[in-house]
Design a protein around this nucleic acid. Structure first.
Lengths: 201, 201
DNA sequence: TGACAAACCACACATTTGTGTGGTATATAT
DNA sequence: ATATATACCACACAAATGTGTGGTTTGTCA
């Protein structure tokens, strides 16, 4: 869990500008950095980049335009986990950060997008599994799944439903996570497996 | 809900290469596209870019290196919503796509990262709100919140907890979403508001 | 006092990168 | 017949961009 090394305020500004531009999809050129921060010489910017590289926050490729990357150590695109709920004494001033979640990882974990689709959950049939009306379910396409997996299944009636897959004596059926809904024994086809649930407030 | 227009196989290849490179964080130069796809002339690449721009899939900035962007219409970095659970007749062959979720939007919705942190949920005190042990709660830093918001709060005991904020007769207290836990009337400070819950299986 | 880091500038030069002009060949549509 | 789209190439040229050298000033640390 390497920590970000000490940066002077100016160095921090340079790093932040690079970060901002990368977030906006295109890393800056050396001159763009200079223009933004009021440097009149490209040499000045190169000095800053040199220290940022030396401190392990930035990576570059030679002779390639805009080829500036932030390293893990820079800690951007990462969300700090500042403590576990009901445990410890978290500090918002970044002094007791327990770790970081990479925002991309947290979301899809570097899956390709090709085998993934989303279903917006409607109804309360999975409420006991903590899946609520309006949640977005991210599904990885698969023709099968294991016992107890939550799956998206295509029913004979041509509906898609999100349910828990159960194997009772070698025969699969679907179960809601809500006692108000009966298990489904009709014919169905697994189309994918639930990998992530996202809820926005 | 505009659809991707018809592309020839070669045009598709160019688009995919651009997409790949953007995904790898640095859009390609015209010559890099040419090298990858075996074109000996920059003019050829420019021809392709021209048609992709004309078909509304690509945007560019003049005289800026690597300034190639994919438009909404290109449909990348988006996850198709292929139907609502228990409603309709979804088609995995992309013929009945109801829309797309931008993966970034879905996750953080273009917030800056600066005011955001994550808590890993421990315990079952919010289970009735569909927040389970192990879920990641994304919190936006705020010193206050509204009645019924779920907030991260710092207790006098120096613990952070995730609870629902209640306003009873002008006085705020915290409530679990689990009848096994009593409401909290002790002193506390709101440090942020729950904006997203993510659960990975 | 000397060494060193931070924080700058100027400017020449090389390389990369984008642009522009003008081609060729093939197929399909009008 | 000729217009249009696809699918290329070869350059020359200009603009953008990265590199290299050699400075200055200020402050700190030993």
């Amino acid at each position: 869990m390497e920590n970000k090394p000490y940066l002077t305020p100016k160095q921090e500004k340079v790093l932040n500008f690079i970060r901002k531009r990368i977030g906006e999809r295109l890393p800056p050129t050396i001159r763009e950095i200079g223009w933004e921060l009021g440097f009149k010489s490209t040499g000045t910017v190169r000095d800053y980049l040199r220290v940022l590289i030396q401190k392990g926050l930035v990576r570059r490729m030679n002779n390639k335009s805009r080829a500036i990357e932030l390293t893990e150590r820079a800690g951007f695109n990462k969300i700090p986990i500042i403590g576990t709920v009901m445990a410890g004494k978290p500090n918002l001033a970044y002094e007791e950060i327990q770790g970081y979640v990479d925002s991309d990882d947290l979301f899809l974990g570097r899956l390709g997008f090709d085998d993934v689709f989303a279903l917006r959950v409607k109804g309360d049939s999975m409420i006991d599994a903590g899946i609520l009306d309006g949640d977005v379910a991210i599904i990885k396409k698969r023709p099968n799944a294991d016992n107890n997996d939550i799956v998206a299944a295509l029913l004979d009636s041509n509906e898609v439903t999100l349910k828990r897959l159960r194997n009772k004596a070698g025969k699969f059926h679907l179960e809601a996570a809500n006692s108000n809904y009966p298990p489904i024994f009709e014919e169905f086809k697994v189309i994918g497996k639930l990998i992530t649930v996202i809820r926005k407030y």
